[in-house]
């Protein structure tokens, strides 16, 4: 089912408020094989001048996943999660964020377009991430929806 671009752009995402947990950051570091002690040991982080464990570059994506149902917007657009691919991901950074910080994430759809005669639909989702009302990072995801009903 094709995505309705007007409906996608008008989607209202509830803001997500997340307090960054030290244990989650440590687990994330362990799973990706991070060996730099700054990302796993709060004492090492402080010795390097950080107030606590830093949020690593891609964990801003994970903060948005803390939403109760991060893919409900796809269901709202009639998209089957199994038909979805992550096409692109971009981050812009304005300030470091640390364990213990509380941030607010506000996602929105900023663009919708199709390729290959509608066989591929693209949703561009931009998320502003703020701490104390100051923008600390922006995350932009390009979500690709494969439409099996359109012959390529």
């Amino acid at each position: 089912m094709p995505v309705d671009p007007d409906k996608a752009r008008a989607l209202a995402f509830p803001p997500v408020t997340v307090t960054v947990e030290r244990g989650r950051l440590r687990m994330f570091a362990q799973v990706i094989g991070e060996t730099d002690p700054v990302y796993v040991d709060p004492a090492a982080a402080r010795a390097a001048g950080h107030p606590d464990l830093p949020v690593p570059p891609t964990f801003f994506f994970s903060l948005e996943m803390e939403s109760p149902d991060p893919w409900s917007y796809l269901a709202d657009l009639g998209v089957d999660l199994r038909r979805v691919l992550h096409g692109e991901q971009e981050f812009s950074y304005h300030a470091m964020v640390y364990a213990g910080d509380t941030v607010e994430l506000r996602p929105r759809i900023i663009d919708v377009y199709t390729r290959k005669g509608g066989a591929l639909e693209f949703l561009v989702k931009r998320t502003d991430i703020r701490r104390d009302d100051r923008l600390v990072a922006e995350a932009t995801a390009v979500i690709v929806v494969r439409d099996p009903e359109v012959a390529s």
Binding site: I32, P56, M96
Partner: peptide, 30 residues
């Protein structure tokens, strides 16, 4: 695998090379 797993690995490449606060933008295509 999750695309974000590979992006996290690449993030390690970056933060192992320069302090993270120097990274202004970071983008990938899967």
């Amino acid at each position: 695998a999750h695309g974000m797993l590979s992006m996290a690995y690449l993030g390690r490449l970056l933060t192992g090379w320069v302090p993270q606060h120097r990274i202004r933008t970071y983008r990938v295509r899967f």
